[in-house]
């Protein structure tokens, strides 16, 4: 009986060893070199604004080192048509993320605020529920001045909301600020 027991023990130990070896060897798929790509990255925001006369202002934020750049100045008392483009430039060619946001329009919303109080920005597009998204916008300038323009993209905000990003809840996917200037021609 004693021998039988120790024999059983040895067998059992052997069984455990073998099964664990099998487990290790099965799972050891040597994917050490696999390079996991960050899929949800937005590296670049391009906010392009154009007035009726074809004057453009482009606000660009590049997270890969370029930072915030503004080409051109806004002209006072003018209405611009604005479009946001989001890119993931870690991919080659760059991936356009704008479509993804548009498809999930009911879960996203852009918020625009400027320290120049005369600037009015309205959202021209709507999601499936008829609430604004903010990829397409109209920007109207008033008097001349300098200040900043901030763009915030919220994920899962309360929709509809009072139009302020602070009260909309949700979590922030993007938050960039540009130094802008409104001038008289």
């Amino acid at each position: 009986m004693k021998n039988l027991n120790s024999l059983k023990t040895v067998k059992l130990l052997a069984l455990f060893f073998i099964s664990s070896l099998a487990l290790v060897s099965c799972s050891n798929d040597d994917d050490h070199d696999d390079h996991e790509h960050e899929e949800e990255v937005i590296t670049t925001i391009i906010y392009t604004l154009e007035d009726d006369n074809g004057n453009t202002v482009t606000l660009t934020y590049d997270d890969l080192g370029g930072g915030s750049t503004v080409s051109g100045s806004f002209i006072a008392n003018t209405t611009y048509t604005g479009t946001i483009q989001l890119l993931n430039e870690t991919e080659d060619p760059a991936e356009d993320i704008t479509e993804e946001v548009e498809e999930e329009g009911d879960e996203h919303e852009f918020f625009y605020t400027s320290t120049i109080s005369d600037i009015v920005i309205t959202k021209d597009d709507v999601d499936d529920d008829g609430n604004p998204i903010g990829i397409e916008t109209s920007l109207t300038t008033g008097d001349a001045g300098t200040g900043s323009l901030t763009i915030v993209l919220k994920h899962e905000p309360t929709k509809p909301n009072d139009g302020s990003s602070d009260n909309a809840g949700g979590s922030t996917d993007l938050e960039v600020t540009f130094a802008i200037e409104v001038v008289f021609t």
């Binding site: 799972s27 798929d29 994917d31 696999d34 996991e36 960050e38 899929e39 949800e40």
Partner: peptide, 16 residues
Amino acid sequence: ENNAVFGTGSNPIIPD
């Protein structure tokens, strides 16, 4: 053995 399973679409905090 730690395996940061591939396919998360996110940089693993803990590597293989």
